[in-house]
C-alpha cells in the first residue's frame, strides 16, 4: 500500500457549505469542491505520512469513519486518496512506501 503525504494545513483555505467544502490550494492556485470524507482525509493526513490502513485507524479515532470494518474503510480511503492524488492535493510519499511519486 502506498504511503501518502499532504502539504501543511497552511497551504489550504477551506470554506464549508451545505455539507461540502470549497478548498483553495495555495501552492497550485486551484479551487476544489470536496465531498466527505475527502476534507477529513486531508486533515488526518496532516498528522504525518500514512498508508490507507493507518489513515483509516486515525479517522476511526477522530471521526468514527469505518468504525468496526477496518478493511472496507481502508479500501474506501485508498480510493479517495487516489482521487486526491490525481488532482494534486496529496502525493505518494517518496521513499516511504512501495512507490515513488512522480
Amino acid at each position: 500500500m502506498p504511503v501518502y503525504r499532504v502539504d501543511p494545513p497552511a497551504c489550504r483555505l477551506s470554506v464549508e457549505a451545505e455539507g461540502m467544502t470549497l478548498l483553495y490550494h495555495r501552492p497550485s492556485g486551484i479551487t476544489h469542491v470536496l465531498l466527505p470524507p475527502a476534507p477529513e482525509i486531508l486533515t488526518a493526513l496532516a498528522d504525518g505520512p500514512a498508508d490507507p490502513a493507518t489513515l483509516a485507524a486515525r479517522l476511526a479515532v477522530s471521526h468514527a469513519i469505518g468504525d468496526g470494518d477496518g478493511e472496507d474503510a481502508a479500501a474506501v480511503i485508498a480510493a479517495r486518496l487516489g482521487e486526491l492524488a490525481a488532482v494534486g492535493l496529496v502525493a505518494v510519499a517518496p521513499g516511504i512506501g512501495g512507490r515513488v511519486a512522480g
Partner: peptide
C-alpha cells in the same frame, strides 16, 4: 456551492486573482 461554481464560470479573472 452551486452559486460559487456558476460565478467562477461567470468571472473573467477568478483564476488570476488567486487567493
Amino acid at each position: 456551492i452551486e452559486t460559487f461554481v456558476r460565478l467562477t464560470q461567470a468571472s473573467t479573472n477568478y483564476v488570476v486573482l488567486g487567493e
